[in-house]
């Protein structure tokens, strides 16, 4: 049995964290490396960088951010955003990423998943799916930040991706994203029941109770969250403390008493 993972996500543009950060004790606000170090300290089981840079120069900056983070953070590191080719995979893995996530490029060219899996192993290939409910129990894959309906059925796409070599699915509910009303449990059930690879839930969490509900009511393996951690509403460790008390298996930090004053 593996522990349920709590994964903070950092949106990075031109080498800077986009959303406001409220961390205490951070030397440079907005530095993705510093933010990743802080999340590691809080007990993050993995860290995700989502590169939302549009320009070519910005891409090089991201590789640099990954390299610096890997020198300072010793938990798995996933990088996504704008990945289009096996070469992009290679560049980020060499810089120190452990996994790379792809979204629209895989929709356009599903073979990218198999090419990357053959070359680097499926453990490092994460398929990100942004989905919306279009009819009760029916979900479509959207791209371009939820603006374009690809017409693809999300469940079928997830199954196909698994066959092609994706090692994990990062599922974002566009319906729940930004609402802070909780994860989209129905959508997660639909995907978790259809694939044998781990599913990371994303979108909608606003309270620690939402994490509890997610792991008590679905088979999701991990939860990804951005703003709830960015704005300092909750620390990763606070979420894990609550899960741990509810008997949900999580990785607790050995230093928890000393550093957080929690018994």
């Amino acid at each position: 049995m593996s522990a349920k993972r709590i994964i903070p996500c950092l949106d990075v543009k031109n080498g800077r964290v986009v959303k406001g950060i409220n961390f205490v004790g951070i030397r440079e606000v907005g530095d993705p490396v510093e933010c990743a170090i802080e999340y590691d300290r809080q007990g993050a089981d993995e860290i995700v960088f989502l590169d939302i840079t549009a320009t070519h120069e910005g891409r090089g900056t991201m590789v640099d951010v990954v390299r610096k983070t890997a020198q300072n953070v010793f938990v798995p590191l996933t990088v996504g955003g704008g990945i289009r080719s096996v070469e992009d995979f290679r560049e980020l893995l060499l810089a120190g990423a452990d996994k790379v996530s792809v979204n629209s490029a895989a929709v356009q060219r599903p073979e990218l998943l198999s090419e990357a899996a053959t070359r680097f192993g499926n453990q490092c290939v994460v398929l990100a799916i942004d989905a919306k409910m279009i009819a009760p129990g029916q979900y479509h894959v959207f791209v371009n930040g939820g603006r374009i309906d690809t017409g693809l059925d999300a469940v079928e796409w997830a199954k196909k991706a698994e066959r092609l070599g994706a090692g994990e699915i990062l599922l974002t509910s566009m319906d729940a994203d930004g609402t802070r009303n909780g994860f989209d449990l129905a959508m997660l059930d639909a995907i978790c029941d259809s694939v044998g690879i781990p599913v990371i839930a994303s979108g909608g969490c606003g309270t620690v109770g939402h994490f509890v509900k997610l792991f008590e009511e679905t088979k999701a393996d991990a939860a990804l969250a951005a703003s709830i951690f960015h704005y300092g509403d909750l620390t990763v460790n606070q979420v894990k403390e609550t899960l741990w008390r509810r008997k949900i298996p999580v990785r607790m930090l050995e230093i928890k008493e000393a550093e957080y004053g929690i018994v």
């Binding site: 089981d45 453990q123 090692g167 044998g196």
Partner: peptide
């Protein structure tokens, strides 16, 4: 019934002490 590959964090249990396991709980 479990996912393969096994990707993730798992608990450690002690069978025999060795120089590398010192200080691990």
């Amino acid at each position: 019934g479990l996912k393969i590959p096994n990707i993730g964090w798992s608990e450690l249990f002690l069978e025999n002490e060795c120089p590398l396991s010192e200080g691990i709980n």
